[in-house]
Simulated assay, not measured.
Amino acid sequence: MLVIAGDYGAAEYMASNLKERGLSIAVAANGLDGLKLATTDRFDVLIVDQLLPDMDGMSLLAALRNADTETPCLFLTSLDGIGDRTEKLKGGADDFLVKPFAFAELYARARILAHRPRAWSQQTTLRYADLEMNLLSRQVTRSGRLIHLAPRQFELLELLMRNCGRVLSRRLLMERLSVSSFDPRASVVQANISRLRAKIDRAHEASLIRTIRGLGYSLRASK
């Protein structure tokens, strides 16, 4: 992975923690160096900060896409309006995090980007059966009925919908929720899954959120 950030302390923090997870990390302290590295070397994921000393992150992203660099990009920003999300996605970002953020969420999102087809990043709406999620407005509906989700529940459902049919381990979900395996709050995963299931599957004949005993959770229609 390549971390492109003008804040030396933040860049080193991200890089050192990612290295501790066994990843190979390169760091660029400005946009020009980042552009050169990203277009000459091969990386699984680019982590790009909006604030750079020589150009803003969106300009760097535009330059990368104009150079036909399709490496998935996780964009770090301090803005979180619907218009801002639209701008980032249209500008070529595959995902984004609003600062400040927990490292566990950075790692989980970067890992997902590294293992998914680039075509997925172009989506602004996710669908499975009669369930629909709008990533820009952050609205979820099932059979046309609006479902109100708490932020953690929305993040869990997005992860499940991006991995329909796959079993997601409890450990991965804990990382996404920034919960340590040694944290007594680890049951927060089960609690949020339970609440999410109640909102998504309640009043519907077909259950979508499945517990795979001993393995984790999956989004799949019941047989």
Results as ranks from 00 to 15, higher is better:
M14L: 09
N17D: 03
N17V: 07
R21N: 07
S24V: 11
S24G: 03
N30A: 10
G31E: 08
G31L: 12
G34K: 12
L35R: 10
K36P: 03
T39S: 12
F43W: 14
D44Q: 10
V48A: 01
D56S: 07
M58W: 01
M58R: 08
M58P: 01
S59V: 14
S59F: 08
L61V: 12
L61I: 11
L64T: 02
N66W: 11
D68K: 12
T71M: 07
P72G: 10
T77V: 02
L79G: 05
K90F: 02
G91C: 06
L97N: 02
L97Q: 00
L97F: 02
P100D: 01
A102E: 03
L106A: 02
A108R: 04
A108P: 00
R109V: 13
R111Q: 14
R111G: 07
I112T: 05
P117C: 03
R118T: 11
A119Y: 12
W120I: 09
Q123G: 01
Q123K: 10
T125W: 04
R127G: 00
Y128A: 00
D130G: 00
L131W: 05
E132D: 04
L135F: 10
L135H: 11
A150D: 08
R152Y: 01
Q153T: 09
F154S: 06
F154E: 05
N163I: 05
C164E: 15
C164L: 05
R166D: 07
L173Y: 03
R176H: 10
L177A: 04
L177T: 09
S181R: 12
F182S: 13
P184S: 06
R185H: 11
R185T: 03
V188P: 00
V188C: 13
V189M: 00
Q190S: 08
A191Y: 12
R195I: 00
L196R: 07
A198R: 13
A198N: 09
K199E: 06
I200D: 04
I200P: 06
D201I: 06
A203L: 08
H204Y: 14
H204G: 02
T211F: 12
G214E: 08
S218H: 05
L219Y: 00
A221S: 09
S222W: 07
K223T: 13
K223C: 07
K223R: 13
